[in-house]
Simulated scan of single mutants.
Amino acid sequence: MPSLFDPMQIGDLILANRIVMAPLTRSRSRGLKPGAMAVEYYRQRAAAGLIITEGTQINPEGQGYLDTPGIHSSEQIAAWREVTDAVHAAGGKIAVQLWHVGRISHQVFQPEGRAPVSSTSRPANGKTFTAEGLVPVSAPRALATEEIPGVVAAFVHAARCAMEAGFDAVEVHGANGYLIDQFLRDSINDRTDQYGGSIENRARLLVEVMTAIAAAIGPGRTGLRLSPVTPVNDAGQDSQAQALFNHVAEQLAPLKLAFLDVVEGQTGGPRDIAPFDYQAMRQRFGGTWIANNGYSREMALQAVAAGEADAIAFGRDFISNPDLVRRLRLNAPLQPLDRATLYGGDAKGYIDYPALAA
């Protein structure tokens, strides 16, 4: 039986183990690009089989929070190249998470102070971090049908920028109530064009994005994150969540993507927030399945050994344990997380967590 610590191939990549660092927003990218601290942060965690970076916006409209990085300009490409070079020098593999927040944004982040864009014009009941602190998100504008090819093109441009920056792969953020999820769920999507209404229509944007990126950079370097039932960012449950995400998996299967990264339950919360058969979805996808959300060492070992997942993504544990892979291998104690330093700030709570003594 496979072990959590065994090497594996996902798409075009050979990973040293089946432990994945989940994407984690840290809001330390001043100037919307990673700096020297980010280089060290990711280098410290390069023992992961695969690092998936913090959410990284595909264009200026994709930003929703203070000091989050992008991957759409030459300056951002150069800054991320410092990160990827450091991770590769330490023997690691790294993917960038391509992010468009949609309506989970504020006009202060938008070009010319415009309204954020979404599948809908209905505002989310949520807040975001700006230079002024925590504020309600702005009311969005529903994308016109003729604008949607431009969104797909922006995802493709960002994916190409990621390859230029030296990333091994990309992960499209289709989860957690952000733009793609805003199209998927009928609790948010109230459109009447070919991107709204039926399950097939609501899944159309996601399928177009994944098809276009796979064609541009290769399916073996293209992954996706989904969260079928999480309620975060005012993402109400879809009326037919199982049918919706089974359909998505079936549509993605022919693309032969590198992986599907699935949040089980509520992101960062209860795993049993709503009923959902993840294995039924996995069977329809047929490719590498990375499971995420609240996995302990014991749960991760069991899931991989039983064939319920090919790899496990750990989030918060990687923040406070840069040497998480070694600690899991040795069954060593994990350091607790300092929640006060999660977002923004300096090196404290970012690159100063100690590794185990030799």
Results as ranks from 00 to 15, higher is better:
residue 242 Q to M: 01
residue 242 Q to V: 03
residue 243 A to H: 07
residue 243 A to R: 15
residue 243 A to D: 14
residue 244 L to H: 06
residue 244 L to G: 07
residue 244 L to R: 10
residue 245 F to S: 03
residue 245 F to A: 04
residue 245 F to E: 04
residue 246 N to S: 14
residue 246 N to L: 13
residue 247 H to W: 15
residue 247 H to M: 13
residue 247 H to R: 15
residue 247 H to L: 15
residue 247 H to Y: 15
residue 248 V to S: 02
residue 248 V to M: 11
residue 248 V to D: 05
residue 248 V to R: 04
residue 249 A to H: 00
residue 249 A to T: 02
residue 250 E to K: 12
residue 250 E to L: 11
residue 250 E to V: 04
residue 251 Q to E: 15
residue 251 Q to F: 08
residue 251 Q to V: 07
residue 251 Q to I: 06
residue 252 L to M: 03
residue 252 L to H: 02
residue 253 A to H: 11
residue 253 A to D: 08
residue 253 A to M: 07
residue 253 A to G: 06
residue 254 P to K: 03
residue 254 P to G: 02
residue 255 L to T: 08
residue 255 L to N: 08
residue 256 K to E: 14
residue 256 K to C: 12
residue 256 K to F: 08
residue 256 K to V: 11
residue 256 K to P: 05
residue 256 K to W: 04
residue 257 L to E: 07
residue 257 L to H: 04
residue 258 A to F: 05
residue 259 F to C: 04
residue 259 F to K: 03
residue 259 F to Y: 15
residue 260 L to N: 10
residue 260 L to Q: 10
residue 260 L to R: 05
residue 260 L to H: 05
residue 261 D to E: 13
residue 262 V to M: 10
residue 263 V to K: 03
residue 263 V to D: 03
residue 264 E to L: 12
residue 264 E to K: 14
residue 265 G to N: 05
residue 265 G to D: 07
residue 265 G to L: 07
residue 266 Q to D: 15
residue 266 Q to C: 12
residue 266 Q to W: 11
residue 267 T to D: 13
residue 267 T to K: 14
residue 267 T to A: 11
residue 267 T to P: 01
residue 268 G to F: 09
residue 268 G to L: 10
residue 269 G to Y: 13
residue 269 G to C: 08
residue 270 P to F: 10
residue 270 P to W: 02
residue 271 R to Q: 12
residue 271 R to F: 11
residue 272 D to H: 03
residue 273 I to N: 13
residue 274 A to T: 09
residue 274 A to L: 13
residue 275 P to D: 02
residue 275 P to F: 05
residue 275 P to G: 07
residue 275 P to Q: 07
residue 275 P to S: 06
residue 276 F to W: 06
residue 276 F to R: 06
residue 276 F to T: 06
residue 277 D to A: 08
residue 277 D to Y: 06
residue 278 Y to G: 09
residue 279 Q to S: 13
residue 280 A to Q: 13
residue 281 M to D: 06
residue 281 M to A: 13
residue 282 R to N: 12
residue 282 R to I: 11
residue 282 R to T: 10
residue 282 R to P: 10
residue 283 Q to C: 08
residue 283 Q to A: 14
residue 283 Q to V: 11
residue 283 Q to P: 01
residue 283 Q to R: 15
residue 284 R to P: 04
residue 284 R to Y: 01
residue 284 R to C: 00
residue 285 F to Q: 01
residue 285 F to K: 00
residue 285 F to R: 03
residue 286 G to P: 04
residue 286 G to L: 01
residue 286 G to A: 02
residue 287 G to F: 04
residue 287 G to P: 06
residue 287 G to C: 03
residue 287 G to M: 02
residue 287 G to I: 01
residue 288 T to Y: 14
residue 288 T to H: 14
residue 288 T to W: 09
residue 288 T to C: 10
residue 288 T to A: 14
residue 288 T to G: 06
residue 289 W to F: 15
residue 289 W to R: 02
residue 290 I to D: 00
residue 290 I to P: 01
residue 291 A to I: 03
residue 291 A to K: 02
residue 291 A to G: 01
residue 291 A to F: 00
residue 292 N to Q: 12
residue 292 N to W: 01
residue 292 N to I: 05
residue 292 N to A: 15
residue 292 N to F: 03
residue 293 N to K: 00
residue 293 N to R: 00
residue 293 N to T: 08
residue 294 G to E: 02
residue 294 G to W: 00
residue 295 Y to S: 00
